[in-house]
Amino acid sequence: MSDYAIEAEDLGKRFYLQTRSSKTFPRRVLYWFWPRVDEKPIWALRHVDLAVKRGEALGVIGPNGAGKTTLLQILAGLLAPTEGRVRVHGRITSFMGLGSAVYGDLTVEDNLFLLGTIFGMTRAMIKKKIGEIVEFGDFGKYRYAVFDQLSAGYQMRVIASAALHAPIDILVMDEMISAGDAIISERFAARMIELRRRGTTIVVASHSLNLIGEYCSRVIELDRGRLVNAAKPSTAAKAYLARHGVE
C-alpha cells in the first residue's frame, strides 16, 4: 500500500471563457471544424505537483481565482485534468457545496437519508445513526418539517450533522463548514480533531489562515494556477501575506 493518499503530477486544467452564444448546438457544431474560434482559453492550474501522505492534513491557500477549488475538484475526481494525472489511494469524501445536495421541497428526514447515502453511508447505517445525527444537530423538532422552511442556520445544522457522521478515509473540503452557529462550529471543530487523531487524510482550502494553521500540518499556496510555496502553516501564512502586501 502506498504511503501517499493522493499523488498528483504536473496537473493542469484549462477552461474557456465563453460568450453566451458559445453554448448553442450550432456553435458547437462549428467548433468541430473551427475549434474554439471565439472562446478564450484560461489555465486555472498549470504544472502543479502534489503528494499528500496518509494521515496528513494539507491546507491550500491563495487569493480568489488562484485555482484552489479547481485543484480540489480534480483531486476529488469531479473534474478531469487537461494535463497530468492524479492517483488517489482510498475513498474520497467531498465537503464542497454541501447545500447543493438537498431538495428544499422534501422533509428534513428525506434529506438526511439522501445526504447520508451521498456521503457514503448505506441506508442501514443511516437508520442506525439517524437518532444520533438528529441529536448532534439538535433539530429533533424539525425532523419532519419541509427543509426550505428551516432557517439558514438550521439548514446548515442538518447538512453538517449528516456530513460529520459519514465514514471518511480522505476528506477534501472547500472552506470549513460555516454554520453561523457556535454550537455546530464547536462540534465540527471537535470532529475535525477526532478525524486527525484517527489518521484521516484531509485536504482543505480556506481563506482563513487561522483555521488552516489550527488544523493543518502543511500548507501549499496557489497563485494564478501555479504552486508558489509549500511550507509549515506559520511560515506559509507569513509568506502569503508578504506576497500580497499585508503586514
Binding site: Y103, D105, L106, D110, F113, L114, T117, I118, G120, M121, T122, R123
Partner: peptide
C-alpha cells in the same frame, strides 16, 4: 451503497 444511493436519489426525484 450504489443501490442505496440509486434508491434515495430516485425516490427524491419522484417525490419532487
Amino acid at each position: 451503497l450504489y443501490f442505496d444511493r440509486l434508491f434515495q436519489m430516485a425516490r427524491c426525484e419522484w417525490l419532487v
